[in-house]
Design a protein around this nucleic acid. Structure first.
Lengths: 351, 351
DNA sequence: TTTTTGCACTCTAACCCGCAGAGTGCTAAA
DNA sequence: TTTAGCACTCTGCGGGTTAGAGTGCAAAAA
């Protein structure tokens, strides 16, 4: 991180109190907060002038800044950092909300649908954008493979991987195969390779192919060759589902078409956002990226609250919420947290 | 249509000429066009005053209007209608562009990918939003069905329909079935029903089930019951792929966050846009919806240029471009036209 | 009859001005 | 250490002015 953070214990209690009041005030209504307002709205019995002095100190430390001379103060990125790291009191979710989440994430839907639901739900409940990375299982055990002949020497390959992921691919073959031939090929491969890891299967296929080079067994060779072709383009299509982008259009700080366009384009390209999510895949729990802290200037004025989700102790992916820096962290954090946990268990029971 | 259109032959040649010049001018730079400009930029040797008189006539007919007293004139929706119906000279695409389209639509990709590519290409080439409806084949012949057992009494059903569409569904069963049992079920169903239409299969299944009611053949009953469950939720997930929404954010006429938000939301909901596309599914060729003509006020200031695409004489769906009313129709129309034709033949050869 | 000239009129957009409101920093007093 | 007082600064808003563009109409010209 470029900026060093502040140790809150170095600050007088009162300053911290004031600082938190200011941030909460600003998060609430988005206007720069002045000394008079704070004097009025805090329990501290201080005059505006005193508060001004304190605010000047906080500004010197880099926690606040004034948009212009005669405006109130606004938290800096470093200010937010201090706030979320040390000052934030997280709300508990009420049971209605928890129930809502539990209902949406019922495991009785296929994985794609589940992920989509999750991000829909995240965006709907927070009114920001919700994002869920596709799970990456480190093991890609082949569950089942099936070949279906299409017209024009083309064969549809259906791979069932790891119990929930289904991939369809089309390969071209040198001649037309009958349904029963393909059935035999499927059977052979299922018997020989079901349960093994994809990468291991690829290795074994190579070996087999050599062995069979001069073999007369046509079927076996065909099977191996097809399997190779099918497994080759392991389009490890990583990506994510995003929902509720339009929510971001309501947010005053982002209400500028240029800025929104850049943001939306980086959503479409996915790579930047993925990189960001990737960063928190090994974090223990909820992580927060504030503003351009993470180095993506499209996310200027945005915060990203993420949490990895796991099942059976294995981290599968990351989900989160993208909203304005000025968000109600105390609400969003537990939502992301619980959603991650529930998604994990939903995936587990669908395994 | 609410407004009656104008018969161009009722208008003096000169007025039409002027009208077209005005529209082309406006499309080019988006500013209201005044009499002086028109006098300068047309071959007609007329003074601004004469042109003013003519413009007043055109305004009376409802083809033009002034945003305010001292502005130039701008075409009305009815004006655009007249223009695209009667006055427009369509450009030919140059061969580079045709080649580009042909390359993108190469049939060597699965249907989903092909549709996605098509809409990407449409948006990229026009710099507006491209949209492609999923194809609806009237026949849903079952090509192949496969059952794969998952954990927890759940069974993955893979349906291959009509040679290119693959659907995955998860059903719950009353007990755990072994892989070989499921294989038998698959075999039975494939033999009995492959090649038949889904709805017909559903009918036959009902009959079969009655027949087998007291039969001792456990396998057959299981097969029928599973098949029923699998085919029941025929999630005829109709929809479309959309690309390049962000292009619309650059367009001056739409550069207002409120408006854009509404537009994007209706993209997300899909139903409105689908309804619109549906309308032109039986048109012969390219169709154009101007502004809120079609009755969707989210499309205010937008035009939609659509064309149905077909293969083997059967109309499969509709594709098109969504852009500002002020677009270069002479360019967009042939792009949509050719894309529709090429998508049709790409789908045919992938059939 | 059609076209043009001349002219008064209107509207917008840009700019400047002045002013109220909010908030600051500094200094001196409590 | 805190507060009161005060001068200062910046924003946002309403109002006024001006330049520019374009109009409509009436009278003259073709």
């Amino acid at each position: 991180m470029p900026q060093s953070t502040i140790d809150p214990s170095q600050l007088p209690e009162r300053n911290l109190y004031l600082f938190r009041a200011l941030i909460e005030h600003f998060i609430h209504d988005g206007q720069p907060v002045g000394s008079r307002t704070l004097a009025r709205d805090t329990d501290l019995d201080l005059s505006p002038a005193t508060i001004r002095n304190i605010m000047a100190d906080l500004e010197d430390m880099g926690l606040l800044y004034s948009p212009h001379t005669s405006a109130g103060r606004v938290p800096t990125v470093m200010g937010y950092r201090l706030f979320v790291d040390s000052l934030l009191r997280v709300n508990k979710l009420n049971s209605r909300e928890i129930q809502r989440i539990a209902e949406e994430l019922n495991p009785d839907q296929d994985q794609q649908a589940l992920l989509r639901r999750t991000s829909d739900m995240l965006s709907d409940i927070t009114k920001f954008a919700g994002v869920v990375m596709f799970p990456r299982t480190s093991s890609h055990a082949l569950k089942h493979v099936e070949f279906v002949s299409l017209s024009d020497n083309r064969v549809l390959v259906i791979l069932v991987i790891d119990d929930h992921e289904v991939q369809n691919r089309i390969i071209r073959t040198s001649r037309v195969y009958s349904a029963s031939e393909l059935q035999q090929v499927s059977n052979y491969l299922n018997q020989a390779y079901a349960g093994k890891d994809l990468s291991e299967i690829r290795r074994e296929l190579l070996v087999e192919l050599k062995k069979l080079k001069d073999d007369v067994n046509q079927l076996a060779r065909t099977a191996i060759e097809m399997a190779q072709q099918a497994l080759n383009k392991n389009a490890d299509e990583d990506g994510y589902v995003l929902a509720g982008q339009t929510n971001l259009m309501d947010i005053a700080e982002l209400c500028d078409v240029e800025r929104l366009k850049k943001l939306f384009e980086s959503f479409n390209q996915k790579s930047e956002i993925l990189q960001l999510l990737e960063q928190s895949i090994n974090a223990k729990g909820v992580q927060i990226f504030i503003g351009e802290e993470a180095g993506y200037d499209v996310l200027d004025n945005c915060s990203v609250v993420t949490s990895p989700y796991e099942s059976d102790g294995q981290i599968l992916g990351v989900l989160g919420v993208i909203g304005p820096t000025r968000m109600h962290y105390e609400r969003v954090i537990p939502i992301v947290d619980i959603t991650a946990k529930m998604l994990g268990s939903a995936l587990k029971s669908s395994k």
